[in-house]
Design a protein around this nucleic acid. Structure first.
Lengths: 143, 143
DNA sequence: TATTGTTATACTCTATAACTATA
DNA sequence: TATAGTTATAGAGTATAACAATA
């Protein structure tokens, strides 16, 4: 008999849910010609574009070389443009193209659908309580 | 302005927490000479050893080739033994060695410490409610 | 023909580090 | 010397598929 039960481990539950969510979301994004690896960067740009790559790196909580490669792919697909920074010649600023901007609505709709499906079994009150606690744990204040 | 806020997305919160947890847990396991990739298989064996690889594959929700490689590594480290199945000559049964069994207590202690640190900001009642909701979402009944 | 397990291959993510160019 | 970004390389996870042995 094990010393710990799976279902009693927060980490185990989070790992299971994370896997379920990323699988489902990745599949949904395929319908838009995207993949989940492109999502954090696109999302950050929908929040605010015209920022430098180092800003994107920080917002995505990823590594600078990952940002480089994701932007290469996004640029190749015509979703973003790299433009020289007006004053700092080392820096590059990143802008969404019209095509990149147009993807926000359908992509966010898929994200919302994904969340809704996962949380379908909870009441509105449970849903709110859950989100509040998760934000607290993730270190985002109670809001 | 974005159509969706990060902190309002269940999926985004789960992804952040999953990353935090796996980073912390992996670091804790290093102190025991383990890594996180070995954990699901070891955990399944602590629950019950002497099972076949296909059973482990199912319990770990992974792929059969992953089980093969993880067991290769565990065997090389002297934590498990593969033995022929008594009646089915295709199948292999997997047993923990004394060393593999001895790791359960310290490894589970790290898992519990990891969970406790993540949930430190919640009251006992919040903790219980959170776990109940997560189990529900993950499809594990309300327990 | 289906099952059990191994191997080959490839793609993504992650991590370290070396590199260019600018500040 | 530090910053911004690119590139090379390697380890780990994941996926498909081919394969051998057995049922």
């Amino acid at each position: 008999m094990a010393e710990l039960k799976r279902e009693d481990s927060f980490g185990w539950l989070i790992a299971v849910l994370s896997r379920q969510l990323s699988d489902e979301f990745d599949q949904r994004l395929q319908a838009l010609g995207l993949r989940i690896g492109l999502w954090p960067t696109l999302f950050a740009l929908w929040e605010e574009d015209g920022v430098t790559q180092s800003v994107l790196t920080e917002k995505c909580q990823t590594a600078h070389y990952t940002t480089t490669r994701v932007l290469d792919e996004l640029e190749k697909r015509g979703l973003v443009e790299r433009r020289p920074h007006p004053t700092n010649r080392r820096a590059t600023t990143v802008f969404l193209t019209k095509e990149g901007k147009a993807l926000e609505h359908p992509a966010v709709a898929e994200a919302k659908a994904c969340n809704a499906r996962m949380l379908a079994g909870l009441s509105r009150q449970e849903n709110d309580r859950l989100m509040t606690m998760l934000r607290k744990i993730a270190g985002l204040g109670s809001r």
